[in-house]
């Protein structure tokens, strides 16, 4: 090895060039990536427990998010399914109702308009309520002509509400009755759930950082002598830190994958009952999973949080270990 060319030679003689070092740098990263995975595999039970806790912590907010999104999708269908009634002022002629109906049918957001004349309405009322005798005692018909408007399906609750307001301002209209209050209430509840899922996400995201950080801290403690040796033979902080960072990354990625598995299982378990419930309402509704995006967010988010936890732990603890 020590060839004669080295006699009295300078310190860095034979040191690798820039290109070699850059290539070596990437090779080191690749080795660390696989090496830290191997290290996890050598302590399967401990690693599994850590990863399971991370998976659960990530599955909770992600699952809540899926439920909230499904509830929103469901309520969006309800809001647009609501017909509304437009009552003309008493004394307005039926012709006015027909004109308004014809105009309304021309609007893009309206699919159907039914005109119910005062006479028809009275007939229906007497037929359904059994108040025939009472109604017949009246001198004249107290009911106005009515339009029943069906908005285009898929229209948002706000758009339907705006559509109804449009009728209210028209000449000869007494009242527009839009029964979406309960849908709005439901949406408000969904919004609270959405906010709650956001808060859960923040808290449990923080928990993942703490879990990984603590695991890496223990790992650093266990490998104290190894770290000392590395420092003695000239290992830079970055070199020593890298395997721990990749360790954190793996914890996060595998935890994220586990969260995907947890959520998929939960969805599978819920799909049957939801289908049955939807069937009872004659509704065509099925639970929507988080999809590929959701999977990407969980795994990517896990990687980020794991890396962050390891970064915090190594920043705090690696510096304290110095050879003596």
């Amino acid at each position: 090895m020590a060839a004669p060319e080295r006699r009295g030679g300078e310190l860095r003689r034979g040191a690798p060039g820039l290109l070699t070092r850059v290539r070596g740098y990437f090779r080191l990263h690749a080795q660390n990536l696989l090496g830290s995975l191997g290290r996890l595999a050598r302590q399967p039970l401990a690693s599994l427990l850590t990863v399971a806790v991370i998976g659960i912590a990530m599955a909770l907010p992600a699952g809540l998010d899926v439920l909230v999104n499904n509830a929103r999708a469901l309520s969006a269908g309800w809001a647009s399914a609501v017909d509304f009634s437009v009552y003309l002022e008493p004394g307005q002629p039926l012709a006015r109702a027909e004109t308004l109906a014809a105009e309304a049918r021309g609007q893009a957001d309206i699919v159907a308009v039914e005109v119910i004349s005062a006479e028809e309405a009275l007939a229906q009322l007497s037929r359904f309520t059994g108040m025939q005798a009472a109604l017949e005692a009246l001198d004249d018909n107290p009911l106005p002509h009515t339009l029943v408007v069906r908005p285009r399906p898929g229209l948002s609750a706000e758009a339907v509400s705006r559509l109804a307001d449009g009728f209210e301002s028209l000449e000869g209209i007494d009242l527009v009755q839009l029964d979406t209050a309960w849908v709005e209430r439901f949406l408000a509840i969904v919004d609270i759930a959405r906010r709650a899922s956001g808060i859960t996400l923040l808290l449990l995201g923080f928990a993942v950082v703490v879990i990984v950080g603590n695991t890496i801290r223990l790992d650093i403690e266990n490998r104290r002598s190894e770290i000392e040796v590395m420092k003695l033979i000239g290992g830079s902080d970055g070199f020593i830190r890298r395997p721990f960072l990749y360790g954190g990354l793996w914890y996060g990625v595998i935890g994220g994958l586990l969260a995907v598995v947890f959520n998929a299982s939960a969805l599978l378990a819920l799909a049957g009952p939801v289908q049955r419930l939807a069937g009872l309402y004659n509704a065509d509704f099925a639970l929507q999973g988080p999809g590929l995006t959701g999977l990407g967010v969980l795994v990517g988010g896990g990687a980020l949080l794991g890396w962050l936890g390891a970064w915090v732990a190594t920043s705090r603890h690696l510096r304290d270990i110095e050879p003596t």
Partner: peptide
């Protein structure tokens, strides 16, 4: 090999 790995030598 460790010191060489640290210094970034080629494989």
């Amino acid at each position: 090999a460790l010191p060489l790995l640290i210094a970034g030598y080629a494989e």
